[in-house]
Simulated assay, not measured.
Amino acid sequence: MNALRAFEAVGKHLSFTGGAAALSVSQSAMSRHVAALEDLLGQRLLDRDANRLALTPAGQELLAVVTKSFERIEQTMNTIRDDSVPTRAMRLHVPPTLLHQLFMPMLAEFHREHPEVRIDVFSANVTGFPDTELDMAIVYDRPNVDDKITDLLWMVRVAPLCSPIVAKAAEGKPMAEFLAGQELLHVKLDLQPRDLLWGDYLRRQGIALPTHGGLAFDTGLAEARYAVTSGGVMLGDVDMFAAEIAAGGLIAPYDAVIEDGYGYYLKLHPDDLADPAISVFRSWLIGRFANFRERF
């Protein structure tokens, strides 16, 4: 246990000095503990050179489990010692556009039904699972297989969306002619070409147009705001922006909705299913999104 605690401190600080200060022990003791743990496992956990300390892949894997395990032990001990001590907050990631467009009311509904479950919400514009310490994450991604439990919440359906003023230019025109005269707006995806989504959409529609121009935004929410206020055509999630479409703020000039291959998935580590709060929230959220999908 001492070796694991020493490794956790060093791994979090990426420094033997910082880890030793956090635990109020000597740096040499920290070094001996980590070395003993590496000998026991037969694997290096840290890469060391003169200027830096870095976790190896084995170290990254072990640090995540050790940190979570110590948190669980501390939480359980606190609960046994004093029932009035609040449980640890569940850390949840939600993509920014989903959070602001749809998830806030869902979160409020869950909070009313389960006030005992504490949730810390984080939001970052990333594709896939964020590189931070989380218990659960709703991620925007293509289908993939990894070591996490993955539940599909919904597949994204897209179509060209624009303001009512821009939509007037589509009257009586085929979609290819309309789009050729408009600025195409983009959402940037990690490690992907800026025009990936438009390029794929137009190929599937049999339309040949250049797609590399136009403005690109970090989030679909920013893209939609620009389309409404300043023009251009976005390739928008028709379910995400259903309220704006129903109110007439965004217009779909053509009946050309397709699934683009991306979706929103709930991901968590398998060992976290033992946490009652996580299990309750997962079941509730899957059911809530199932009801949401039935509307479309």
Rank of each mutant, 00 (worst) to 15 (best):
F292V: 07
Y140P: 03
G232Y: 09
Q60P: 03
A227M: 15
L55I: 04
A169L: 09
S163E: 09
V66E: 02
L14M: 03
Q182M: 13
I165N: 11
R72K: 13
Q75F: 02
T127Y: 06
M104L: 15
H33W: 14
V65G: 01
L179Q: 07
L99Y: 10
L197V: 08
Q27C: 00
S84I: 00
A58D: 13
A274L: 10
E259M: 08
L202W: 04
D275S: 13
S84M: 01
I245D: 04
V66C: 00
G18H: 05
R48S: 01
R48P: 08
G11Q: 05
F129D: 13
R32G: 00
A137R: 10
S28H: 11
F296W: 12
I207T: 02
E171V: 13
P86W: 06
A64N: 06
S230G: 10
C162T: 08
F241E: 11
L40R: 12
H186E: 00
F70P: 00
L221Q: 05
T127V: 12
D195V: 09
D255T: 15
L235N: 06
D146S: 07
R32Q: 08
A35W: 09
W154P: 07
K188R: 09
F217S: 03
L98E: 05
D39H: 02
E116K: 04
D82I: 01
W284D: 05
D271H: 14
M104P: 06
H212R: 06
E171Q: 11
V121C: 04
L23G: 01
Q75E: 15
A36M: 07
L184Y: 01
V228M: 15
A290W: 01
T219E: 06
L152P: 10
F292A: 14
Q27F: 03
D146E: 02
Q205E: 10
A6D: 06
R295F: 07
A3H: 06
S279Y: 10
R48T: 03
A242Q: 15
G128M: 02
A108W: 09
P174F: 08
A252K: 15
P96D: 04
L189H: 06
L102G: 01
S123T: 15
P160M: 10
Q205D: 08
A20Y: 01
N78A: 06
E183Y: 06
I286S: 08
F16Y: 13
R88K: 14
A137E: 05
M77R: 11
L202S: 10
R72E: 08
E133M: 11
H269D: 14
G231N: 09
G206D: 06
R203M: 09
A124K: 13
Q192E: 15
A137I: 04
D275N: 15
L221W: 05
P143R: 02
V166F: 00
A22R: 05
R142N: 08
V94R: 06
E294C: 09
S84E: 11
E116F: 02
A180T: 04
E183S: 07
L161F: 10
R293H: 01
V187F: 00
D120N: 09
R5I: 01
G42M: 03
E171F: 12
